[in-house]
Design a protein around this nucleic acid. Structure first.
Lengths: 212, 212
DNA sequence: GCTCATGCTAGAACACGTTGCAGTGGGCGG
DNA sequence: CCGCCCACTGCAACGTGTTCTAGCATGAGC
């Protein structure tokens, strides 16, 4: 008799993994991230990830539904670390206005990607993936992004500020994309992003010292 | 003696093409677009485009450097037609404020993509391509986007409004992506996009009737 | 009308993401 | 401690984007 339902081979949720499995998952993620920074996302092959991580190729696909999923999870992890750094650094400067802190936030964020251009390419490459698992990871990344921005400018109320944080997220992603794909220079992307942050935050400036 | 420099096989500029060649190029573009709307970008194969257009597969690569390039050129063409429609429809309503016209602009734009969801997927799929030719096509699309927005709200001065138009472009692309990849619903994407347009245009509202 | 370079065609070949398969081994219920 | 199950391994196989090859045709210059 023919087996009608094939064994479920979509990745198990992280929480349901044994320590052994979490270890393998971690190996895959760090191998992928290391290889990307070394040779770039364009040259990265799943076979290399498999070899470097010591996990068989077929097994890698039990942990990540696709190359996109693996890469999305990897960049999401890295980006989350970056966000923590940014919140620590920028949130520390209690003095400046929320707008200035937000500007510093994205400026430092851009600098981080400038130092790791292959990771910028990775983030862009993976951003439009339609793999549901990859998309979920990226949704988490976007959420973390907005949460970090919220932490940096607590004086903007969450309700109305939600729009602003979405905007900043889109602007960041858009300028990063434009830079990475060669449609603009890094300097233009960075200054434009900063100006955009100021633009969407003008309503939340202190009393608004209009001069004219 | 071995030929050291291989023949240049990157696509010739459109202006330098004979009528015959322009015709072939057009066949490729319309075959690609038709197939995408019929079966979706995920299922589209270059072989099918070649067969449907009557152009040999190898030849297709003389016109477009990659699948990405072909698809980017196709969606750019379609999007430009859409923009012309939008400017015609929305620009006609001389009455409303620039903000309202911009909102109507993106609302109708979103509706068009709602009617052609496969083209929305196409646009998103192609948006982060690193193929230089594809990227060039997309840069043109983004420029046309901003020009159309400018035509719809002529009272916003080009210099300062450039930022606003870039913002709207990023917001549109970002929400489209979020929808197409299943990270949000179409309704949420549309309303959020409209609110974003209002947000970035507040500085350009008429005298600003603040009530509080 | 002839010649020849150039561009086109069909199809094979190649690369890499992904899947399938047969065998192996380690952890867990008994 | 035994045996079984299931995840893991190595590897072959498959699909599709891209490139290569050999031969054909078309049209510009004479």
């Amino acid at each position: 008799m023919v087996r009608v339902t094939k064994v479920d081979l979509s990745p198990r949720p992280v929480e349901a993994m044994s320590p052994r499995q979490l270890e393998r998952r971690g190996s895959l993620l760090s191998a992928a991230l290391a290889l990307v920074t070394e040779i770039g996302v364009e040259r990265l092959q799943m076979k290399q990830v498999s070899e470097r991580s010591g996990v068989a190729l077929g097994t890698a696909y039990r942990y990540f539904s696709s190359k996109d999923h693996l890469l999305a999870a990897a960049i999401a992890d890295w980006h989350r670390l970056l966000l923590a750094d940014l919140v620590g650094e920028v949130g520390a400067g209690r003095s400046a206005s929320p707008t200035e802190r937000a500007v510093r936030f994205v400026r430092r964020g851009m600098r981080a990607y400038q130092r790791q251009p292959e990771l910028a390419r990775l983030r862009v490459a993976v951003a439009t993936s339609t793999d549901p698992f990859a998309s979920e990871a990226l949704q988490g990344l976007a959420r973390a992004d907005r949460a970090a921005l919220g932490a940096v400018m607590p004086e903007v109320p969450p309700a109305s500020g939600d729009l602003v944080r979405h905007m900043v997220g889109h602007a960041w992603q858009g300028e990063l994309t434009a830079w990475v794909t060669g449609r603009t220079t890094l300097d233009d992307a960075r200054t434009r992003l900063e100006e955009m942050v100021r633009l969407v935050l003008t309503p939340y400036e202190p009393p608004a010292p209009l001069s004219s």
